[in-house]
Simulated scan of single mutants.
Amino acid sequence: MAYVPLNIDFTDKQVKVIGGGKIAKRRVKAILESDAVIHVISPELTEDLFQLYLDEKIIWKKKIFESSDLEDADFIISATNQQEVNDVIKKSAPKHSLINMVSDAQVGNVIFPGTLKRGKLQISVTSTGASPKLVSNILDDLEKQYPVDYEEYVEFLFESRIIIKSLNLENTEKNQLLESILSDQYFDKDEQNKLTNWLRRQPKKRTREE
């Protein structure tokens, strides 16, 4: 199967997670900030998942899985170790649904990559099931290369880009500024503030209403 790496907006999409154990917990936490409507279908939940249910972050269907549970699913996560259940999930999934089969990623059409997050920066790594250990090693290397405070630098880039795009400059000048803020100089917070203040003093392009 050929996989294409994508970032998908799951806002208000119906996500059905079959299983309430540790693996289900990891999958739920991976998509919790996506604003999807997350349904967990399982007779029992881990303590963490139950707390998410109490906090109204997920919907819990306290029951044994039935094929009818998938009727309106946009994304299905099969987090059980029961082959017969996994088979039913695969056969019952709506044709438009995305499916992640935890027991055998190759059976579904979605693989969860290992992901390093630094604010708006997300770096995802997958070996397409070849070696989860390799993915873990690469993520360890990335954590050293992009430490936690990198989040502030990415936020600076984001804010600067918005201001630069609004300036009354030719596109070539804007591109030069966008390139310049990638300099190591701007890892320094004081340098970031100096540039941001300077950018805010520059004339903005006029709108049609003006």
Rank of each mutant, 00 (worst) to 15 (best):
E155C: 03
I162D: 09
L139Q: 07
L178N: 07
V125Y: 08
L98Y: 05
E159K: 11
Q82V: 15
R26P: 05
T11D: 11
D72W: 07
P203A: 00
E56D: 13
M1P: 10
D141E: 14
D140P: 04
N197M: 13
G20W: 00
L134S: 12
N197V: 12
T128K: 13
K194N: 11
I31G: 04
R161N: 01
K133P: 08
K133F: 14
P203S: 02
E143C: 10
E159T: 08
S183T: 02
L177Y: 08
N7R: 12
P147E: 10
V102E: 09
Y150R: 01
L52F: 03
R26W: 06
L52A: 01
S42L: 01
R118I: 02
P113M: 04
S34F: 00
K16T: 14
I99W: 01
N100S: 05
A36R: 00
K189F: 12
D184K: 15
Q83K: 13
K29S: 12
D149E: 13
H39K: 10
K120T: 08
I38F: 00
P113H: 03
I38Q: 01
G21D: 06
N100K: 01
G114L: 03
T196S: 13
A130R: 10
L49H: 00
D35M: 12
Q82W: 06
V4R: 10
W60T: 00
F187D: 10
D12G: 05
E84S: 15
Q83R: 12
L6F: 06
E155M: 10
D149R: 09
K117H: 14
G108M: 00
L134G: 09
L52Q: 01
K57D: 11
F65A: 01
L157S: 04
K62Q: 15
S136P: 08
D48Y: 05
D12H: 12
N175Y: 08
L139D: 02
F158K: 13
D141G: 09
I164S: 03
L6C: 07
V17A: 01
P43W: 05
E170Y: 09
I76V: 06
Q51I: 08
P132L: 08
T207K: 15
K62E: 15
R208I: 12
K29W: 06
F10I: 07
I164D: 02
A2E: 12
F156L: 03
N171L: 15
V148Q: 14
L142F: 07
S183D: 15
V102K: 01
I23L: 12
K63N: 05
N193F: 11
D48W: 04
T126R: 04
P203N: 00
W198G: 04
A73V: 04
V148E: 15
